[in-house]
Write a protein that binds this DNA or RNA. Structure first.
Lengths: 186, 186
DNA sequence: ACCGATTTTGAGTATACACTCTATTTTGAG
DNA sequence: CTCAAAATAGAGTGTATACTCAAAATCGGT
């Protein structure tokens, strides 16, 4: 762990390089060599500050996951449209970080600690969407609420994925339309 | 190219091993060594029959892509519910092949010829879903039709992805519910 | 300015990968 | 049965990967 100023700056450079690479070339392209070259650091320095390559990647991913969700308000419970808007502005406002999250979720969701982190976060999101829906639609059963939460989240992820493939894709428009049509059909 | 019976059988074993591995451990885990071990073949034999590892993988993926879509009927145009049901039965009926498709689409969609194949197929699917929707909802503009097609496809992919992560996930139920609620909100 | 702790270097290790090459065995048409 | 073509084995190549280590440079509290 970094204790001197030099080490702290180097650590930040490495994290930033890792974040950029994950967004630009994905998990596979984010090699140790690539990270070190971009951060202007030799391998030995990297391992003086990080336990492993996954250590650096995991830090970036955990930051990204934190950024997906808005801070819960203290005065009132979440509203569904707020959660959807937060997801939209996360994806469009920080496209690089969003790509990190999506790429990890999609390419690495079945292997290792990275995958577990993503899966745990996904379950937390389903719960949060569910409670927002339950608040707004008291007539729905718990099962129906979960159904709708899962469908909305699936749609959002699927749309974000399309947007990843085709940069010109109108992700915000599609996401809002999908969320609203899913709401009216209560 | 295989010309003798022995070669033809070996080729089939290699394809089958590749298909199984893609479904079980994804693209990254599908190494040449793993393919050769499972197919009970040495590396030299593999390269006598295939140009490259990607050659074998691409054949499997192309098979999977062909299996995603139902054969168009000659007497009538597609109906949306038919297309949705076909996707559901593809995913649930051939889960291993479906996993191949999803994993390739999600992990390899941004690199190389594999990705191009997947993207081309995706656009074809949007077009087919669009024409089905247009047939059933003459009141919608072309833009609205495309919107709906993209949303339904995104939802289906997202739900299939959830089902990949959690085998107990009720994919057919969620997919039907999502498709129907998307239809009523015309 | 000193000096132990921290940081940096850069060559080096071990491993896994896709792929090649040559010798040998097997196949099947004539 | 013959024999050229096809199939196979298995050691070997080159490259990329993550990671290590000992020595040198730098930092910063005293």
């Amino acid at each position: 762990m970094a204790r001197y100023q030099a080490g702290i700056r180097t650590e930040a450079r490495i994290i930033e390089a890792t974040r950029e690479l994950l967004g630009e070339v994905g998990l596979d392209g984010t090699t140790l060599k690539a990270i070190c070259e971009r951060a202007q650091v030799r391998a030995g320095s990297f391992y003086n500050l990080f336990e492993s390559k996954d250590d650096a990647v995991l830090r970036v991913v955990k930051d990204a996951i934190r950024a997906v969700d808005p801070h819960p308000r203290q005065d009132a419970p979440d509203s569904l449209s707020e959660l959807v808007e937060a997801y939209i502005s996360f994806v469009t406002g920080q496209p690089e970080v969003a790509k990190v999250y999506l790429k990890i979720a999609m390419s690495g969701a079945t292997n290792g600690s990275l995958g577990n982190t993503v899966i745990r976060h996904h379950k937390r999101r389903v719960a949060r969407f569910s409670s927002a829906i339950a608040n707004e639609h008291a007539e729905l059963t718990a099962e129906e609420v979960t159904e709708r939460a899962e469908i909305i989240l699936a749609t959002l992820s699927g749309l974000a994925f399309m947007w990843m493939l085709e940069p010109g894709f109108d992700f915000p428009g599609r996401a809002r339309l999908a969320a609203s049509s899913s709401l009216v059909s209560g």
